[in-house]
Design a protein around this nucleic acid. Sequence first.
DNA 1: AGCTTAGTTGAACGATCAATCAAGTCAAGA
DNA 2: TCTTGACTTGATTGATCGTTCAACTAAGCT
Lengths: 192, 192
Amino acid sequence: MTAMRLFQEKGYESTSVADILKAAGANSGSLYHFFHTKQDLLLEVLRRYRDGIAPMLLEPAWRGIADPIARVFALLARYREALVASECSYGCPIGNLALELHEPDPPVRQAIATNFDGWVDAIERCYIDASARLPATTDRRALAVFTLSIMEGGVMQARTQRRIEDFDRSVAMLRDFVALLERQAKEQRGTT
Amino acid sequence: MTAMRLFQEKGYESTSVADILKAAGANSGSLYHFFHTKQDLLLEVLRRYRDGIAPMLLEPAWRGIADPIARVFALLARYREALVASECSYGCPIGNLALELHEPDPPVRQAIATNFDGWVDAIERCYIDASARLPATTDRRALAVFTLSIMEGGVMQARTQRRIEDFDRSVAMLRDFVALLERQAKEQRGTT
DNA sequence: AGCTTAGTTGAACGATCAATCAAGTCAAGA
DNA sequence: TCTTGACTTGATTGATCGTTCAACTAAGCT
């Protein structure tokens, strides 16, 4: 869908229906035949993002990578690549929408939340798969939510500073944290 | 300035000049006498936020708190309070602007970046003040950037999930990380 | 009193917005 | 061949947007 690309590039509010129609080479009537409102179109786009998390995001990022912790950082590396390739103007489309729409209609907010849930679920599974290497007391879900915070916050800073370093610094600290957790887990395993 | 409140509540694009005028009880001519464009008004708002970081944000958050690490979490607690008080609809106004404006004019981007810098500077100073308790190898600046990422990411998730837990989880993980760093620093001090 | 100037008023402008709709096309089924 | 219904066309609508401007007010200076 052309609308996906435009919402990503220019944001939802800044993309007019006319923009979408011109880019797609269609007329307004055709679009409104399938989507009753612009918001319906947005909901469809969000549905596609949700359905695309596994095949379009995780699968390419994790190809050839089996280690669950390495997978976490491989996913983060994808966002880094997108930032670098766009000279730090790329932004996570879901994160953009999350802050762009200040008081979104409930279905839209829910659709964005579902996208976040899908991302966090996938990362949580990584940490669960790596459970043996993490302290028993560490909440895997919290760690996954934390990881999403760092990704979104890192992208936000890199974008507004036009500087990849701020993303890298955030990820580097997460790496240090995970390394410390692994060390702690090893110690605890040794003493029981 | 009334515009500050409205930009915060509804976002920049969603706040029309007419909204501001009505809320302020003024006429368009008066506003445009002082600000040539709506964007000029935004720049003034961003200037006020920047000038307000110390007196309006840090000073109240840190009143009666001397410990530099405690100060970091006291500041994060302020954002938590704002979230709770607004039933998780509050958002950091700078973060909102950072993602709302997808291709902002250079002066606007710069003004947002300056606000981030001011925040990160303040937190970096905390970590520098706590230097004796942190490993020598840990980059204080990176830790401060990391902290901002977690705050912005945590606010973003709590807002879209309408759930304070996602903010709390992010902050809790940061707390664990800092505790591990302090423990690591203590060990290293002991072995040298 | 007269002049200057900072600030105010509010109607108006053109642009752009999401959305509509009557009229048309076209392929499949009866 | 005729009918039906899915889909397309594109001009048009009314609302709203940021911005402008000529006219006006009021305070300060000479």
